[in-house]
């Protein structure tokens, strides 16, 4: 293939390992979280019981998916205290590290869709159906309306996220067909199809991401050489532009709710433009930009 691989520049500049650091850490995180859940049923070592909707770690730490708790409440059922405590812990965690960190660092479906995305790129598959990235919010609303209208957590009947995670731990059955369908959808129908356009869980977590603390920051945006690798590698490319290019006087912090803090842009940039930081780095950077020789147009 004649197309140069994304991040080839970064690999040349920083070495392979540095250019894949966050990707590797992310895979370690995804796989070890899954392994913790699987340790019980496969090896009889019960550190974590349950699955991503609710889990109980070492018989002390409850963790509840706040999205499913919300659906339960909409069915007019008031859960036990333990479920609320678990949801509060999870909410606090994602308020710190970023809402959609669930998507890129925890969710097992990400492994499937990333594989599809990788293959799509290798096979040079372009284009496909246009599905708006806002669709997920409509689906999120639909799942909540369904809970209210049917009095049951209807979305859980078909939710591929919990179907995959629960299936791996408790038995997959025909759930494989749904996961395969998502893989093929992302491969042939549209890029970032499930995670970036449809998944209501991701949409829910992006709402937390509106105000969360940890952020990807284009700290050295003046060094950007417009190679576009970050845009190509990013699963939510629309989040990068305002911070990187200072659109409408935007600071360098990526404040868009759908940034998953996956760190792929950090890896893939040969100029080390991106780094993790907090949402509060925005104003300071704005003041210091002219001193760094930023184009005045970017600062309004």
């Amino acid at each position: 293939m004649s197309i140069e691989r994304i991040g080839a520049e970064a690999v040349a500049a920083k070495g392979w390992l540095a250019a894949h650091k966050w990707l590797l850490l992310r895979r370690v995180s995804q796989i070890s979280i899954l392994a913790l859940f699987l340790l019980g049923p496969l090896a009889g070592v019960w550190i974590v019981k349950g699955n991503l909707t609710f889990s109980y770690t070492l018989d002390v730490l409850p963790l509840t998916d706040p999205y499913i708790l919300l659906q339960t409440l909409l069915t007019r059922h008031l859960p036990e205290m333990k479920a609320f405590v678990g949801a509060a812990i999870v909410l606090a965690l994602y308020l710190l590290v970023g809402g959609r960190v669930f998507c890129s660092w925890v969710c097992p479906v990400n492994l499937v869709t990333d594989a599809a995305g990788w293959l799509r790129q290798r096979l040079g598959i372009k284009g496909g159906a246009h599905i708006s990235r806002r669709t997920r919010y409509w689906i999120l609303a639909m799942t909540l309306v369904l809970a209210l209208a049917t009095g049951t957590i209807a979305w859980e009947l078909v939710n591929p996220v919990s179907m995959l995670h629960r299936g791996l731990i408790f038995g997959m059955g025909a759930g494989w067909t749904v996961i395969l369908a998502i893989f093929l959808f992302d491969l042939f129908v549209t890029n970032d199809g499930w995670c970036g356009r449809l998944c209501p869980a991701g949409a829910f977590y992006s709402l937390i991401g509106k105000v969360s603390l940890l952020r990807t920051v284009a700290v050295r945006r003046s060094a950007c050489n417009d190679c576009m690798d970050c845009f190509v590698v990013c699963p939510e490319p629309q989040v990068i532009r305002p911070a990187l290019k200072g659109i409408d006087g935007a600071g360098p912090v990526i404040l868009a709710a759908n940034c998953t803090n996956c760190g792929r842009c950090i890896d893939v940039c040969s100029k080390d433009v991106f780094a993790f930081g907090t949402r509060f780095g925005n104003k300071v950077a704005k003041v210091s930009q002219p001193a760094q020789g930023m184009k005045p147009a970017a600062c309004k």
Binding site: K49, T64, D65, L69, T72, G151, I153, E156
Partner: peptide, 10 residues
């Protein structure tokens, strides 16, 4: 039950 159960398997 279908509104209250979160399918966690505990």
């Amino acid at each position: 039950f279908l509104g209250a159960c979160v399918r966690c398997g505990l």
